[in-house]
Amino acid sequence: MSIHKTPLFLLVLCFSISATAQGLFRKKDSIVTKSLSESWELNKKDRTGTFRLNSYKPFYVLPAKWSNRINEMPQSVGEPPAFDEPVDLHSTETKFQISFKTKLIQSFLFGKGDIWVGYTQVAYWQVYNKQLSRPFRELNYEPELIINYPLNFNFLGFQAKMAGFAFNHQSNGRADPISRSWNRIIFHFAMEHDNFQIYLKPWIRVDSDAEIDDNPKISDYVGRAEANVIYRKNGHSLNLLLRNSLSFNDNHGSFQFNYMYPIRNNLRGHLQVFSGYGENLIDYNHYQTTIGLGISFVEW
């Protein structure tokens, strides 16, 4: 039986390699983890100036990501399917993400506020699909301009650390009928306590022309807010990302769970589980559950 038809084999193989590596390599150096102040340079001692590249969201590669219901007939709400026949996609593919940010302006608001620019790119690669010449199924590009202001007060047992908002654009760079894009103003509030960090992010979609909307009702599926809860200890990291449409009539959303465990230095094994709508833009109104296994390089 060929490997590309056995997703469970790929998952087991990847897990075995990671587990073996964890046993072979002694952890000589601790995982580099950062507080909110260090990640966003909130205190004077943490500031490094402008135009220096910093990590934003995790860098990771999941060589094996399996879907229980891969989207072979993408279509927007209220529109006909993009293709006449289902695309012969494999349920197992590779996913990877790169993400970075840099500070453009420092201490512009009452001597404390900063302006950052961030960029995240996520790829879904049908690398095991020889019949279709191993194409990239979906690429999502997400640039954003972030205004951030440090805070310092107690809130529900946590220490509030920052708040602000971002001008966010997300698109897949494709032509009709599978073009997907939207613009948002995303507000954020972050706090931490001991090994926990919590990000709360509600957003408002910037109105688009209804006649050329690539993804109508995307807020009803992907959501209107997210909560990101992160727990770190001894090089291990647990992350739960929840999104919800905040609608009582037709409630949708998703959850994504990430577990990262130390292998050597800053190299870590990475398990990711997703369930719900909108894992990516082409699947914004498509429900599925996915499991991915791979490695991470940079802490959140």
Rank of each mutant, 00 (worst) to 15 (best):
N148W: 01
A64P: 11
G111Q: 10
Q126G: 03
L139D: 06
V87P: 08
G111W: 11
F100A: 14
G111C: 10
E79G: 03
K161Q: 12
Q106R: 01
K57I: 10
H90K: 12
P135V: 10
Y124L: 02
S76D: 13
S133D: 15
D88Q: 13
K103Q: 04
P135T: 09
F153S: 14
F165N: 04
L151K: 07
P74D: 07
E93D: 13
F153Y: 15
N154K: 15
E79C: 05
I98Y: 07
G113D: 02
V127I: 15
T92R: 05
M73W: 08
A160W: 04
N140I: 11
V87H: 08
V77P: 06
Y149W: 11
V127T: 14
L62I: 06
I147C: 05
Y149C: 13
Q131K: 15
S76I: 04
S107G: 06
L104M: 11
G164Y: 02
L145T: 00
H90D: 13
N71A: 00
Q159F: 11
N54R: 01
Y119G: 03
S76K: 11
P58A: 03
K57V: 10
V117T: 15
N71K: 00
S55F: 06
G164S: 05
I98S: 04
I115D: 05
T102H: 06
G78W: 08
L53S: 02
P74Q: 05
E72Y: 13
P86K: 10
I115W: 12
T120I: 05
H90I: 01
Y56A: 02
E144G: 09
W125F: 06
G78L: 08
A64W: 09
Y56G: 01
Q131G: 10
W66F: 14
I146L: 07
D84A: 15
V127M: 15
Q106H: 02
K161F: 09
I70K: 06
Y141G: 03
T94L: 07
F165P: 05
P81L: 09
